[in-house]
Nucleic acid binder design. Sequence first.
DNA 1: CATTGGCACTCGCGAGTAAAGAGTGCTAAC
DNA 2: GTTAGCACTCTTTACTCGCGAGTGCCAATG
Lengths: 365, 365
Amino acid sequence: MANRSGQLPQKTTLRLEDLEPRFRDVLREIVLEYVSSGEPISSRSLAKSGRFALSPATLRNVMADLEDLGFLQQPHTSAGRVPTDRGYRYFIDHLMRSRRLSQLEREQIDGEVGRADEVDEMMHHSSRLLSKLSDQVGMIFMPKLNQLVMRSIDFIPVSDTKVMCVIVGTNGVVVNRILEVPAVRGRDELERISRYLTAEFAGCALENFLAALRTAVSGERAREDQDWRESIEFSMNAVEEVVPVDEELCVEGAMSVIRKPEFSEGRALNRIAVVLEHKRELVSILGELLVEGGTQILVGSESSFTRAHNASLVVTSYGPAGRPLGLVGILGPTRMEYARMAPLADYLAKALSRKIEETEQENES
Amino acid sequence: MANRSGQLPQKTTLRLEDLEPRFRDVLREIVLEYVSSGEPISSRSLAKSGRFALSPATLRNVMADLEDLGFLQQPHTSAGRVPTDRGYRYFIDHLMRSRRLSQLEREQIDGEVGRADEVDEMMHHSSRLLSKLSDQVGMIFMPKLNQLVMRSIDFIPVSDTKVMCVIVGTNGVVVNRILEVPAVRGRDELERISRYLTAEFAGCALENFLAALRTAVSGERAREDQDWRESIEFSMNAVEEVVPVDEELCVEGAMSVIRKPEFSEGRALNRIAVVLEHKRELVSILGELLVEGGTQILVGSESSFTRAHNASLVVTSYGPAGRPLGLVGILGPTRMEYARMAPLADYLAKALSRKIEETEQENES
DNA sequence: CATTGGCACTCGCGAGTAAAGAGTGCTAAC
DNA sequence: GTTAGCACTCTTTACTCGCGAGTGCCAATG
């Protein structure tokens, strides 16, 4: 098949970046067109689009070359072409022009993020909005709270054997949980403990706080002051219970996948449904992606998860500058509007980051 | 068509309760068989089942009569018969023998309900379990909190402009919410207010509490004591914000509907997906069903909601005796195992009720 | 007279076939 | 280098036909 080699880019090294302009234009057009129509693109329809002053025959040659290079493929011999994962990748890296969000979209995001007070609420609403705007599955991931910097800790009696523990972070994060307690403790005593701990440990990260408690419980004063030791022990158990919150991932819009034709047939739908119902696995996948910095896009075969489901994942980390706290993610079929998804995830992540920073400053002042 | 009239039950009055035993047996068998197989039932297969000492021809006659009475229908001329909504209704009211739950199922429910501390958690876990056990959509509905009897109310500072309000009910329900506050209030002041309100109003239903505050704010002391008035005003606003919690409905297992063949084709799936994503409508539907007492089953055409989606809904109210607090619901296709769903919803509702009663007593003591 | 076997009839379903249409690859001409 | 033309491939759709499942009715039976 050394025939059409005259049409290949001059440099036979496979430096994809310097594909001839025409190749780039054609690939871009095909991706855009396919993403919006969902149907394989033929040379004829490309020619008719008017964006090229070329005949179908010429475009066919270009397309054949792009296929040889692995950017396109044909579902069957007599069908148009469809981008491969590699085609999408090249498109994302070199051809895509991010579509700015509309005024309305930005307002919606800012509004939703601005309104939220509690973390849970914020995660729920944001992921739901994300799903609505993207018409894909929207996810907000908020990892473990080890590094939450504590502002205050309070204990409130709920019943004779139960106490609610509320930890407020300097970044406005509020965690609360109800604990079973062995011994009955009065409201006053709980208040005393709250005051002591808050005064002593405000400003600590949760993990340090916990470590300090663990040291204290076997320290000198603990041996001498039985009462004090019991209080510390009690607090320690409480904090240990609070830290591993399991509701750390919000997935919304799972139903929107059923509208996607690529998932609609038989097995695929079923498999993805199972995954979405079990957050565990998703959490472990997202956990690996939580690194500092920009927007990552995983296309189909590029990760084990997306490969298994013919899906793509757009993720961006959020959090104060240089300290990623969690992830914003959009999950959908490989054929998705990356040019819109990426800025969407990006904008939401930025909004969340800003919100968090504001709250932190507010609290430091 | 006055032909087969000799076969009709003697009493031509349409008192369905006294269908001839044979008619009842046949209808029961058809419903059971169809529910489990999903395919129209033929006279031949009924005869082969061995439960009747009759020939296909005789059964055909019976089935034709049942069709005339509106209990059965044929998808097309040369197919077997399928129960109509009316057929299901008769089955449910007169023929169904509830299947007892297995030991394992009961243990799972008891375990899940027993373990839960907080209301939110309980609702989430219960509805998820319900969905798993029924393999349908599981729902737990918990209406407005107007009637929650207050045990204590606390305010915790979250930032300069925000305060978290925690209300603990005598039934162990804990509601918390973060509020924006106009004026900065110190930890000590908030604590003072908490103490005062708890001492004064513990034992009140939330709506009475709110009413009392509203009276107080325009009362005599309010005019004289500026400080006191501000505190009351502040609390009033807080409680007003807390009461209408919107997270009052938990829907789990939405994905399980896609496995049901009756929903798998085209439009139906899409429509039901939309409904499940928007809880608002579901809430309003369920709200109407919240009446005292037993298990209700809505089959297909019997309510506007289920009619629109070819679905059935099994609901039971839970709560302490004589005071229904909320609903347990199972949503699935008309062709569902009512004999299993009903006891399932029932048992879960009972478990929840018991749990709630226990917690209330625990707190009264 | 309820029950039953027999039989003609209806209708959906699947296999098989044919025609249509879409798109390509290649060649030869411009 | 570009393009028109053409043969070829493969999918999609429509249509037919026969099969099988199931029914409704009738006449025969104990």
